[in-house]
Computed example of a mutant assay.
Amino acid sequence: MNNKLKGLLAVILLSFLGWYFLLKQSDYTITFKVNAATGTISQGIVEWSATQSKKQNETYSILEKRNFDFIKQQMKKGNEELEYTWDMKSINDSMTKVTIGIKDLNHSFYNRLTAPFISTKFRTEQIEKIKSFKLGLEDHIGDFKIRIDGEGSSKEMYVAYISLKSVLQEKAQTMLEYDPKIIGYLDKNKIKIIGYRPYLEITGWDEDKEIVNFNYCFPIPKDTKYIPDSNVKFKIIPALKGIQATYFGNYRTSDRAWFTLLDYAKKNDIKIENKPLEHFLANPFNGGSELEWETKIIIPFAKK
């Protein structure tokens, strides 16, 4: 082997070692695939972190978040400090690849020397931890079904509505809290509800803070005379064209269909306005299997 080749190999080796020990973001990486949208997984990470905080006394803080496909968080427990970098990449309409980079801020050099090559305490604990997350996520996914219907449209409707605001995870609970107000108003004023199948109209969605502004709506006859009220208003929801899905499951997690449509739009280069319209076709107070509760969801095309 001549000196030039030896020198080149030395440079390559030193460059690799420099990258591996100084620049590489993680000590150990775990990858898996799951039948869920990137947003569903992102929500799962947030909820899992909250559970870990309660059950394992682990404190999680988000260092960086990008849309619904990237989360970097720090975990602290006693003297232990770890960073988890979650990267979600949609493979197709239903499958997502999840890559988790894990870094021990106090023992990074040792873990890089050992964890990728031999079974260490750090490696075993992290594999079990991520495996537990994946099993919990798969259990959650089993609680609902989503069917992408492709392009669709909604009908124009005249509605009575209340404007509300909540974090994304509590939209259904917020609707239930205000249900007596709007139903009480309609009953008191003898206003007919057409079909008793309400709509939820998203008017604003802060994806970073996961806060939604929305109207909780009930269809009523167009000739209904408005009786002034501090909460309830009347309006026309125009007909919409967009991409549509059918969701079967508890209304609390109907946003899982939103995430599925977002991934579908991104993959198919469809420009949409992130303001879903949900039409609930079942009454949860009637009981029955949640997998039979049907919701039609449409996200409108972006305005040209």
Rank of each mutant, 00 (worst) to 15 (best):
N79Q: 11
D87Q: 12
M157W: 02
S42E: 13
R123G: 05
G184E: 07
S94W: 01
N283I: 04
G7Q: 07
G242Q: 05
K171C: 08
S61L: 12
L9R: 03
E81T: 12
E290T: 15
E177Q: 14
K296G: 04
K131Y: 11
E80V: 11
I272P: 02
H279L: 11
I91S: 03
N286C: 09
G287C: 07
Y264N: 02
F32K: 01
R112F: 13
I102W: 00
D263A: 12
V167P: 02
Y216M: 10
W258K: 03
I146H: 02
G242V: 09
C217P: 00
L22H: 07
Y84K: 09
R197V: 10
F214I: 06
D269S: 14
I237N: 02
Y251T: 03
S15Q: 01
S119I: 08
T85M: 12
K304S: 15
L164T: 12
S42G: 13
A50Y: 11
E177L: 12
I182W: 09
L8W: 04
H279Y: 06
E273N: 15
Y185L: 12
S53R: 15
I237Y: 03
K134P: 00
K275Q: 12
F68T: 15
T59E: 07
E170C: 10
K97I: 09
G78W: 05
A50S: 13
K209M: 12
P284K: 14
S49F: 07
I211A: 09
Y247L: 02
K165F: 08
M157A: 09
E207S: 08
N92P: 00
L168C: 13
P238G: 13
S61C: 07
Y28N: 00
K271G: 13
R147W: 00
Y264G: 02
F70I: 09
W48S: 06
I194L: 14
I71S: 06
L63Q: 11
F280Y: 12
I182G: 11
Y185R: 14
M157P: 00
K24Y: 05
I243N: 01
E210M: 14
S230Q: 12
I237D: 01
R256I: 09
K303G: 15
S90C: 10
S166Q: 09
I202N: 12
Q73N: 13
K103E: 04
S119M: 10
K24Q: 06
L63C: 09
E170Y: 15
E81Y: 11
Q173T: 14
T246A: 05
E151I: 13
I91P: 00
K304E: 15
I162E: 06
F122W: 10
S90E: 10
R197G: 04
H140D: 02
L23T: 08
G204P: 01
F32D: 01
S153L: 11
F21G: 02
Q126C: 03
G44S: 11
Y20R: 04
T174Y: 04
D208F: 13
L262I: 14
T174F: 04
I91N: 01
F109D: 01
K155C: 08
S132D: 10
K303D: 15
T31M: 11
C217T: 08
I193P: 00
V232Y: 05
K241C: 08
V159C: 08
V159T: 11
K267W: 05
F32T: 01
